[in-house]
Design a protein around this nucleic acid. Structure first.
Lengths: 230, 230
DNA sequence: AGCGGCGCTTGATATTTGTCAAGTGGCAGT
DNA sequence: ACTGCCACTTGACAAATATCAAGCGCCGCT
């Protein structure tokens, strides 16, 4: 991998505090690849060969079973995926495909497991990352089990507005992906947006505007133990 | 804690391979407590003070939000809970209450974090346990998003039959808890059982009998990437 | 043994969500 | 600029799930 590419992923929480030699070693055996949109990077049930890092672009994690399919997560730049499968030396539970033109860093699973053993700081970072991932998954379960689809959408909008810093949100991906991510059909997402129009939200294409935060918040009933990013 | 009590929890995957001194240290600062059924052990949003280990009994992990409540997991003997919150030094995402008379070992969170640093074997075990927990949570998400409630019940029965080793299953807890665990109302669970009666399942009270495994399996469409225990 | 409570079931109905079908509009490619 | 594709929307309907209400039956208590 070129040194320039390596620098980019140094800021990843997983790598931020680790030893320089460890990072160099990981980077030396890893490589960067470019993909057009719509490419399947990994497929569930395959053995975990590489830790993947999204340097640029957008990657959708999804899973299928008996003909149905759902989006588990959308990974944005400077995010890693399938760390758990890599560490446990298991098969993937999720598939991954690019949603946009993307640059992905791939680091051999064996090398990751080796570095975990040799660099205590890396091991600590791995523990933090896994714990964070676990808690995010639990929050997802709570979100699905305790809320209706319109409520999930309302809270997603509030959270995304917070991330994008303002009262307007630009959809980072297609509505069909958002629908799947939130656990509903595209048709139902349209109707949920229609519902939110009476709760202080204005939608035009991929542009969402929060007209009345108080009203939307009262409808969404946000809960830090579900919605707050760690 | 008495040495006898300590031996019991030594078999926990989290402790199995760790150094004797580490275990002794954890056990020395920890203590065992007995609880009657229905006692709340921890409450979501509280800071994570102790790692909890179920030595005996049954503990329900649950979460509530805006008046609704759901069961995330039921922890059986020789299981630990809220490891992730302890390690990340965060607040709990889940509450816990005993379903039966239980014996719980409580180990101070600070001591756990300390031992992770000093015993590499313990650190490895923690990583494995966290990765396992993460993957279990992802499987839960897939189960919820990709299946109907009757399908979830069918697969739960098949998995439980496998665990209990045979074609009959005895419910380990109340049906209302199972309903909440599977993400449905008690009424809907009753109807799901009724549906399964046409798919080779016989239910009488807390006794479930699989009359036709082939038929039930065809209905359930089990998927190792959702149902298989790791 | 009798009694009361509560978990479970069942029926009727409402709500939520999914499915199918048709139509619209924006965007990319020619 | 035109055209065709495809994501999105909307409507009508079907299925899944929740809610409300009533009754049953088991279990523990006195």
């Amino acid at each position: 991998m070129r040194p320039d590419d390596a620098i980019e992923i140094r800021a990843l929480p997983l790598f931020r505090g680790i030893r320089e030699e460890t990072f160099a070693e990981l980077v030396a055996t890893g490589f960067l690849q470019r993909f057009p949109p719509g490419v399947t990077l990994i497929h569930e049930h395959d053995p975990a060969d590489f830790l993947h890092v999204v340097a640029d672009g957008l990657v959708e994690m999804y899973a299928a079973s008996s003909g149905r399919e759902t989006t588990i997560e959308v990974v944005q730049p400077l995010g890693a995926f399938i760390l758990a499968a890599v560490l446990n030396d298991q098969v993937y539970l999720q598939s991954a495909r690019t949603l946009e033109k993307s640059r992905i860093v791939m680091i051999p699973a064996a090398k990751v497991r080796e570095c975990v053993e040799t660099d205590p700081a890396f091991m600590r970072a791995v523990i933090m990352e896994l714990a964070r991932g676990y808690r995010r998954a639990i929050k997802d379960v709570k979100n699905l089990k305790l809320r209706t689809s319109a409520e999930r959408l309302a809270n997603w909008i509030l959270r995304e507005a917070d991330i994008q810093g303002g009262l307007t949100v630009t959809l980072p991906f297609e509505k069909r992906v958002l629908a799947s991510r939130l656990g509903m059909t595209p048709e139902n997402l349209s109707r949920a947006f229609a519902t939110l129009r009476t709760q202080g939200v204005d939608v035009t294409g991929s542009h969402i505007e929060i007209k009345d935060v108080v009203l939307l918040t009262r409808f969404a009933q946000p809960d830090p133990l579900i919605d707050h990013e760690e």
